Simulated assay, not measured.
Amino acid sequence: MNTWRNRFVALALLGSTAHAAAADDVILTVTRGTTQHHFTLQQLAALPQASITTATPWTQGKHRYRGVAIGTLLQRLNMSPPALKVHALNDFWARVPTAVALQYRAILATHVDDQPMSRRNKGPLWIILPLSEHPELNQEKYHNYMVWQARTIEVE
């Protein structure tokens, strides 16, 4: 797996091109074998929304994150895989056990404090777990599942 250093360097490089995703831009691709599902911000917003208010190791204080629950997305795609391989814009990736995502109601956040997430603030998609609500998640293993600037999900 990539190191934290790689994540921070890539984030710094992408910061110069920070912008919120346009509603008609594909911001997420979910693949299963040769099948691909593409989602725009508008399409993700049309799905039932969920929110998590939490602190993270990378932000100051608690923030309210809003987006589609991973469980909702998988249900919409009629998929129930054991794991999701989530890739970020900077080539970081993490294998997220579906059971963890479902148990803790992880979301693909598109908004923070009611503002669309830009690349500069870890968007346009960031997997959020409720760290403040579940202190047992506040460890590196789970932090690695919280992929920011998520772009693709490979269903395994």
Rank of each mutant, 00 (worst) to 15 (best):
H87A: 12
H87T: 13
H87N: 14
H87S: 14
A88T: 08
A88H: 08
A88W: 06
L89F: 13
L89H: 11
L89A: 15
L89E: 14
L89P: 06
L89M: 15
N90H: 14
N90R: 14
N90Q: 08
N90W: 10
N90Y: 12
D91L: 08
D91G: 11
D91H: 15
F92K: 13
F92M: 13
F92Y: 13
W93R: 15
W93N: 15
A94E: 06
A94Q: 09
R95P: 15
R95G: 14
R95A: 15
V96K: 01
V96L: 11
V96N: 04
V96D: 14
V96S: 04
V96M: 10
P97T: 07
P97E: 07
T98I: 11
T98E: 07
T98K: 09
A99N: 12
A99E: 09
A99W: 04
A99V: 13
A99H: 13
V100N: 08
V100R: 08
V100S: 09
A101K: 10
L102S: 08
L102A: 12
L102E: 06
L102F: 08
Q103S: 12
Y104L: 03
Y104D: 10
Y104S: 06
R105M: 11
R105Y: 09
R105Q: 14
R105H: 11
R105C: 12
R105D: 11
A106R: 02
A106N: 07
A106F: 05
I107Q: 00
I107R: 00
I107E: 06
L108G: 04
L108Q: 01
L108F: 00
L108V: 05
L108P: 01
A109P: 02
A109E: 04
A109D: 13
A109V: 09
A109Y: 02
A109S: 07
T110D: 02
T110M: 05
T110G: 02
T110L: 03
H111S: 02
H111E: 00
H111P: 06
V112Y: 04
V112L: 04
V112E: 03
V112T: 05
V112Q: 02
V112A: 03
V112C: 05
D113G: 03
D113N: 03
D114C: 01
D114K: 01
D114F: 01
D114H: 06
D114A: 01
D114R: 02
D114S: 03
Q115R: 10
P116K: 00
P116Q: 00
M117F: 06
M117G: 00
M117C: 06
M117V: 02
M117T: 00
M117D: 02
M117P: 03
